[in-house]
């Protein structure tokens, strides 16, 4: 157990190091930071001095080491475009994105699981066929098209929901939350539906196929033979055994929700990190790109690690077969 945890931790650290290296290389590829910091009229002497002061003349490993040390302390430099420390900008935008992601994940779970269970139990009913067809169409519709359709229906035609922004927010310390106001919740509805739809179809299909699998097993047949009620069989026995893969997928997808929130935030002008990142890409604002990448990677790696360790805790079989446990990530 201990050796496994240590190995996974080392693996995670290695991935983070690679990501940090990629982020760091961004600075080299996407232009000279000095050019981005000084004006047109700066002399060669100024530039040279600035280069020296920023440590850009140091050997590559020294610069990379400094980048990693700074990144560990949450410092990523000054945004070229906004001329403010990147960590402040990200901290400002983070609550908006995380609230959106949280609501979307919950939404996807509380609708996806029941629909999946239904489709798994009544596999041949027309409702579940219809649901599956709709979910295929849902997968084919790009996120932003869904968002636009929702805006058109609910904001332009029916005039019932706002189409952009977060509504009124309440500041609690450095965290700004939209959960405490009515307009905040209103503003959350459309973006969170948009963001959750893809995950919803994913969860629904996953639960459905897992249910179909479980329903075939002997212990379900035995439970039926014992005369247990359908309800007890479906939810008490079958669903319980489908939840481990569901939890894994949902956990791993929290990361992609953060990444996909870039699109949703653009459609709904949601003032989160995704919007910040996309502006940074448009203007090649490298410090923000590097910080965002590192941060998202950190979230990904932590969740991956957590899910792996949870798996290990949940499923006792893995403790015997250590090889499978380590190989699961691949």
């Amino acid at each position: 157990m201990v050796s496994y945890v240590i190995r996974r931790l080392l693996q995670a650290a290695l991935v983070m190091l690679v990501v940090a290296f990629v982020s760091f290389s961004l600075f080299r590829f996407a232009g000279d930071p000095v050019n981005n910091m000084v004006g047109q009229e700066a002399t060669q002497e100024d530039r040279r001095e600035l280069r020296e002061r920023l440590g850009l003349n140091d050997p590559f490993p020294v610069q990379f080491g400094r980048f990693v040390v700074d990144a560990l302390q949450g410092e990523f430099g000054i945004s070229y475009r906004l001329q403010r420390p990147v960590e402040d900008l990200i901290a400002e935008r983070m609550p908006a994105t995380l609230e959106l992601v949280l609501v979307s994940a919950v939404l996807a779970l509380i609708t996806g699981i029941p629909l999946g269970v239904y489709c798994g139990i009544h596999r041949d009913s027309w409702v579940s066929r219809a649901l599956l067809t709709v979910s295929l169409i849902g997968v084919s519709l790009p996120t932003f098209v869904i968002g636009i359709l929702l805006i058109y229906l609910f904001s332009v035609q029916m005039l019932v929901l706002p189409s952009f922004g977060r509504g009124e927010v309440v500041q609690i310390g450095w965290w700004s939350t939209g959960f405490l106001t009515f307009s905040g919740w209103q503003a959350l509805i459309l973006p969170s539906i948009t963001l959750s739809l893809f995950q919803l179809t994913l969860i629904m299909r996953l639960v459905r196929s897992e249910m179909l699998e479980v329903m075939r097993t002997d212990y379900i047949k035995f439970a039926r033979a014992r005369g247990l009620s359908n309800r007890a069989i479906n939810f008490g026995h079958a669903l319980k055994n489908t939840l481990v893969p569901v939890i894994t997928i949902v956990g791993l997808n929290i990361g992609s929700l953060i990444a996909f929130s870039i699109i949703t935030e653009t459609v709904f002008n949601w003032p989160g990190m995704g919007l910040l990142f996309i502006k940074a890409v448009q203007f090649a604002d490298v410090p923000i790109m590097a910080a965002y990448l590192t941060m998202v990677a950190f979230v990904f790696v932590s969740i991956n690690l957590l899910v792996d360790l949870l798996y290990y805790a949940i499923d006792p079989r893995l403790k015997v077969d250590r090889g499978t446990a380590a190989g699961r990530l691949s």
Binding site: A30, N35, G255, F260, V281, A284, M289, V301
Partner: peptide, 26 residues
């Protein structure tokens, strides 16, 4: 491949996009 696969393709694409834009700018 594993490292790249653990990030959504759209994020990787955006990143490469930003780098290439920056490269041609400079």
């Amino acid at each position: 491949a594993e490292i790249q696969l653990s990030f959504p393709a759209i994020l990787v694409a955006l990143l490469i996009n930003g780098v290439v834009i920056g490269y041609f700018k400079t």
